[in-house]
């Protein structure tokens, strides 16, 4: 990869990751939920694989780590769903119940468990796509 692209990517990684994280943290106030934010972070991670080469990225985030984070986020999602069912709010004992305090409208810390679920989904999606791309890029055709 030419040096110009590497330098530009150095500058651009920070803002784009911040933008992606912003979308999935403020997912309950803005259009765009964990899924969209996760895809933006995934696209920047895939850009890093393309620009810096697979070996560099293997040292920082290996495929095993990515799969681990992705699957753990999904498992924590399901565990939070079951915690809601254990009955922290007495009249609603359902899966994925909204049991954290709901602050006032349109503040950041409002809306129960929804921001936490957004963050978990964002991590899961981002590292999932990264793992898929890392798998595809280390495929060698058998000549």
């Amino acid at each position: 990869m030419p040096r110009v692209i590497k330098i530009l990517t150095n500058y651009v990684i920070g803002p784009i990751i911040t933008f992606g994280v912003y979308i999935f943290i403020f997912g309950h106030l803005l259009p765009g939920e964990g899924f969209d934010g996760g895809m933006i972070v995934a696209s920047i991670l895939i850009l890093c694989i393309i620009v810096y080469g697979k070996d560099e990225m293997e040292k920082r985030i290996s495929v095993n780590t990515a799969v681990l984070i992705s699957v753990l986020s999904a498992i924590i999602f399901i565990i939070i769903g079951f915690v809601g069912m254990a009955g922290l709010r007495m009249e609603h004992k359902y899966f994925l119940d909204n049991f954290l305090p709901q602050g006032s409208f349109s503040h950041l810390f409002s809306g129960g468990i929804v921001p936490i679920l957004n963050i978990l989904v964002g991590f899961s999606v981002a590292f999932g796509f990264y793992a898929i791309f890392a798998y595809l890029s280390e495929y060698k055709t058998e000549e």
Binding site: L29, L30, F35, M39, V125
Partner: peptide, 26 residues
Amino acid sequence: IAPIVLKDAKNYTDPYPHAIIPAIMA
């Protein structure tokens, strides 16, 4: 206007597709 919660707006467009379309894109 776009469905972002603001203090003084009355008429929002539909927020449902904002959740549906990224899932379909993915």
